[in-house]
Design a protein around this nucleic acid. Structure first.
Lengths: 199, 199
DNA sequence: ATCTATTTAACACGATTGTACCAAATGATT
DNA sequence: AATCATTTGGTACAATCGTGTTAAATAGAT
């Protein structure tokens, strides 16, 4: 009796429409009507999947984490050198005009949005922070990190650099290229690693 | 016949009320009524100083630049070592729970807000970017910068680090201390400077 | 064909939005 | 004391907001 519509697939579709509005109009534009229009649904249909706006936003935010984490895991499973994997993972969180994925941009909007109101920032829900922590652990295990470094300080510095680059890419969309981003990342890794990071 | 109310002082007061709302409720909370209530004014009074909401926002944004630039100039005129000045300037752009100034936080909100719609990001209106550029110039003139470095890349890396730290301070307000911020800044400067940066 | 879960459409409600207009109040100048 | 530009408070409007309710339409399983 259930219809053939995959419920989670539909919810994801709506969440993606929400992301698009967040990117084009900011949080001010996130209204049930705007989202319904963007998704090509009626108000009632939207309300069928998400009974309240807060529920929709929570889902849209958790989906960012899920998709970014999945991308990260995929890269880690590829067959490359450890450093190439690390670079690849970091690039996931950097948006550019060359790729149309929204996760990286939306992550930053949600991160800043959390600073308002009473909603608290949950570190374990920040895919980028978790990825950076993993990367730092790997660098230690591989004995690639310069010995005298303060690991927690370097972790912070890397996540801050990442967030700053995302903000820059969003603000200067057309002027930022993937190559420049990679160059910056590689250079930063070189300053904290013993051996020369590839390329 | 003009009344004794200083017009620009009044406009600044309203702009500061706007900042407060931006910090507490985000851009979604920025409405004429909210601002009027926060400033203790009536709708009509608010409209007397700013005939339109866009005009108010433009003024509030330009005021961020003005006040941050003024703070920067003040530090540069103090009698300290060049490196202490540089550190002091960078700290201006880092908010913390210890200081109640809003400029640094509001700057980031405006910067991200500019990514929506067709409003373009103007580099020369980003007080932090201008400060970092000045700092890099000074480092070169003082011959403190490591020679092999790519200056424009290091400029980017520093502004990105700064923006990332601001975002972090806003999101993890209570957990970030001024000392940690200074430590991070000093460490980063040490990685790009020849001599040891003080303290 | 019938049943049932899913999906859509349409409308109503109170609240809030930006903008606008106007009468009253204010205070320095005459 | 009289004058008048400046400043303020109050009200009004059309539009949009989130939410809720209702009935109709749809489509797959039986």
């Amino acid at each position: 009796m259930p219809k053939l519509i995959d419920l989670t697939e539909r919810k994801q579709f709506i969440a993606h429409a929400t992301w698009k509005i967040m990117l084009e109009q900011g949080m001010e534009g996130v209204s049930a009507r705007n989202i319904a229009k963007e998704a090509g649904l009626s108000l009632g249909a939207l309300r069928y999947y998400f009974s309240t706006q807060e529920e929709l936003l929570l889902y849209a935010e958790s989906l960012v984490f899920e998709q970014l984490t999945e991308k990260t895991n995929e890269i880690f499973q590829e067959e490359k050198s450890p450093l190439e994997k690390i670079i690849g993972v970091l690039m996931i969180f950097l948006p550019s005009k060359e790729d149309s994925d929204m996760e990286a941009r939306v992550r930053l909007i949600f991160k800043l949005h959390g600073s308002n109101g009473r909603k608290i920032y949950r570190e374990e829900q920040d895919a980028a922070l978790q990825a950076v922590k993993n990367i730092m652990s790997n660098l230690i295990l591989l004995n690639l990190l310069k010995k005298e470094l303060d690991v927690s300080l370097e972790t912070d510095r890397l996540i801050h650099l990442l967030d700053g680059m995302v903000l820059d890419a969003m603000v200067r969309a057309e002027r930022t290229t993937r190559g420049q981003q990679r160059k910056t990342i590689v250079h930063h890794l070189n300053t904290i690693c013993k051996e020369d990071v590839g390329r």
